[in-house]
């Protein structure tokens, strides 16, 4: 479903601040893979998601989604294939627009936007039903401005928006990191349900090792712009945090240097 072929990304190339964010990374996701991505700060986790989404161009390599080479496509054209949820709850929704308007915008992802009404009665009924399934009481707030909702509510709606038009690929960039633990758990639960119900292919970056082990069918670990570990199937199911840390030390030759990952 997704092929990342020898992708390299260097920020501030040729200056003293040169930073190799991704170094010749290759990764293939099968249809229906739910891959969790962990790694310390600056390992390249978010960069790889941004490369796939087309936020910045790659310096070398190719990105292929479902057989289509999207390497040269701008961000808004790749959106046809990709649903995204960001770390910052403010980033995934339009704060001054209503909840139902946000959903309607997401419902037309990948479609030419013309002179039909932005939102129809049929749409509203559909969104109400979907919001009800989130079980956050949001079905009564369809005409609230998005900015009035809490971070957790906004992330839940962003998730809904990302999956409303079934994407070929779902990209989750630490989408629970800015939420309190209880809300984060709820949002993760919704994520898992949406991925399973729609049998989506997903890449989920997380700082939380426990979540990385608990969710998905495959786990990759990144360090210094490279994938240093790729665990699937049975082996992934039997992982523990201790085993993961040990694997990290072995693979990278360094201690896992993120307190946040250990503590959470």
């Amino acid at each position: 479903m997704l092929e990342i072929k020898n992708v390299t990304k260097i920020f501030n190339g040729g200056t003293v601040n040169e930073k190799v964010a991704l170094s010749d990374v290759s990764l293939t996701l099968e249809d229906g893979d739910f891959v969790t991505v962990i790694g310390g700060n600056g390992a390249g986790k978010s960069t790889i998601l941004n490369m796939v989404a087309g936020v910045y161009p790659v310096d070398a390599g190719n990105i292929v989604i479902d057989g289509v080479d999207v390497t040269r496509l701008p961000e808004h054209k790749r959106a046809k294939y990709i649903g995204r949820v960001f770390q910052d709850p403010m980033m995934g929704t339009a704060a001054d627009m209503w909840v139902e308007e946000n959903l309607a915008i997401a419902d037309r992802r990948g479609k030419r936007r013309g002179f039909s009404w932005a939102i129809t009665k049929k749409d509203k009924a559909k969104y109400k039903e979907l919001l009800k399934q989130l079980d956050l009481g949001l079905e009564t707030r369809m005409t609230s401005k998005m900015g009035l909702l809490s971070g957790g509510q906004r992330q839940a709606i962003t998730l809904l928006m990302a999956t409303l038009k079934r994407p070929k690929l779902l990209l989750l960039d630490e989408h629970t990191a800015a939420l309190d633990p209880k809300t984060a758990a709820k949002v993760l639960e919704i994520t898992d349900r949406l991925v399973k119900e729609n049998s989506l292919t997903a890449l989920m970056v997380t700082h939380n090792m426990k979540d990385a082990i608990a969710y998905g069918n495959r786990l990759i670990m990144m360090n210094a712009g490279k994938v240093i570990l790729d665990v699937k199937g049975e082996e992934k199911k039997n992982l523990t945090i201790e085993a993961l840390l040990e694997m990290f030390t072995k693979a990278s030759g360094a201690e896992f240097a993120s307190d946040r990952a250990l503590l959470s």
Binding site: A53, P74, E75, H76, K77, A79, K80, I82, R84, F86, M90, M91, G92, T93, A94, A95, D96, M97, E101, A104, I105, A106, R108, R109, G110, K111, R113, G114, F115, S116, W117, A118, I119, M161
Partner: peptide, 26 residues
Amino acid sequence: FGTELGASLRATGNNPNMSRAQGINT
């Protein structure tokens, strides 16, 4: 501004990141 196209303009002004992620040519 009530049409799909008009809504894409409002979204662009409000949150260009989200708009691009939803396939709007900002």
